[in-house]
Amino acid sequence: METPEVEKCRTGSSGQPDEIDSILEKYRGRKDALIPALYDIQKVMNYLPESAAVKVAEALEVPVSKVYGVATFYTLFSVKPRGKHIIRVCESAPCHVLGAMNVVKELERELGIKVGETTKDGRFTLELTSCLGTCGVAPAIMIDDVVYGNLTADKIPHILSEYR
């Protein structure tokens, strides 16, 4: 999975060590800020590598085991490198009833990967998620921060083209 592309977005200009340090500056000594800190770091690093987790642990004065324990608890965090864009397909009942599985199948077909995998070019990671709170337009998916609803299989290629 460690394609050069993934590598690039992992350590691209934004992931420089001093940037991590400056992100953490405002959280120093604040144990309660673990989740905001992980958010900020993941934003620039794309995931939470061990080296960054150590910096968080140091800045917030918590054991790194806890940083890891927290990072692996929440689904919006990843401790493994991921694609540039994260596609999350809602698999909860309201979306399921209205055909979420067709959307999953179409995404898998279009991207040539299975759920849980990252495309070879490192552009997309496909994940399943619980309800996104947009069930009014079920079935729904979320690509990065953007929701797409009322989906049918035939809408998928067009949506993906925006990210290709």
């Binding site: 918590v62 054991p63 806890k66 890891y68 324990g69 692996t72 608890f73």
Partner: peptide, 25 residues
Amino acid sequence: CHDVQAAGVLYPTNRGVDTVVTPAY
């Protein structure tokens, strides 16, 4: 390990049925 020994080596990771107690990473 955390409260008595302050070493903080072991912590629960993942969640649900995938939970394991382990050192970081």
